[in-house]
Design a binder for these strands. Structure first.
Lengths: 153, 153
DNA sequence: CCTATAGTTGCGGGGAACAACCAACTGAGG
DNA sequence: CCTCAGTTGGTTGTTCCCCGCAACTATAGG
């Protein structure tokens, strides 16, 4: 069976990773000094709504320690608010502040512009299709990688 | 105009980055102890044929210093051979050794298997289409990011 | 009391950029 | 020719960021 397709996919994925990193790291500080990874956290909070640190870490597929530090920084910058969970004194609920929303909004616009410039000759249909396929891909990968109960270890 | 599409694309891209990293880092050492980044260099060499360090760095979109160190390690492991460029005593030509080819071959098979498992329910047509779109995306991004003469700074 | 869970902090490591550097290839003038 | 300035190919040192693991605290729940 044609395993070349998968290999090609892996290769292209790898390149995309690099380019994406360049994009976010170069066209600098899209998130107004926050950087791409913290920006990802903002985006996750926006999409998923207020949630606990562990949930956020799970969403982002990073270790809780990583999420903890990132969250701490965002809180310090006033982009995220942390309030105690009324049901559990150990836990905290993280949520975007008004500032966080604003920063994220501007960032989305800006990165959108950049991508739009690069992809000026794309039809919207193509773009949508790509997004759709990527979404499916991510879903399946996620399931394969962590859906199986094996912990991240 | 619908900038949501681009934002979604950015978000999905980011997630893919994370998942890809997990995949290569977890299903561990696909390249027999070489690791994903060095593997990428092997793949680039395979696809582009023997080339100079600078060309390789350009392909991979990394700084020459990074490529230099990676190449050095691959040479040390005997997966890549470095021979002097007859036309330029400063330069060297990097090329895969037989071992390098073998390792890469096995790695491609293995990562292909993993992806295939995760994407078992995909049709080959879908996969091909995704690869096609990704390739196009990468091409355009690359052009936008570094095609413009502005240096990386 | 004992175990499991939410989070934090202290390591350590890997990937990458930047800058400073050496070496060798240019390409004018003299 | 010859030399010297400028350019280009590579390497090394430093630093930074992101990450995972391990150890720890504190609360929850039986």
């Amino acid at each position: 069976m044609r395993s070349d397709v998968w290999s090609d996919l892996v290769d292209q994925g790898r390149l995309l990773v690099r380019l994406g990193k360049l994009l976010t790291h170069r066209h600098v500080e899209i998130y107004e000094g926050v950087g791409p990874t913290l920006g990802g956290m903002l985006a996750a909070l926006s999409k998923g709504g207020a949630m606990r640190l562990t949930a956020l870490a799970d969403q982002l597929q990073v270790d809780t320690s990583v999420a903890s530090r990132q969250a701490a920084e965002l809180v310090e910058r006033g982009l995220v608010e942390r309030r105690p969970d009324p049901d559990d004194a150990r836990a905290g609920i993280l949520d975007l502040t008004a500032d966080g929303h604003a920063v994220l909004q501007r960032a989305r616009e800006r990165s959108g512009e950049i991508v739009a410039a690069a992809l000026a000759d794309w039809s919207e249909a193509e773009a949508r299709q790509l997004v759709e396929l990527l979404t499916k891909l991510n879903g399946d990968l996620r399931e394969e990688l962590c859906g199986g109960r094996e912990r991240v270890r």
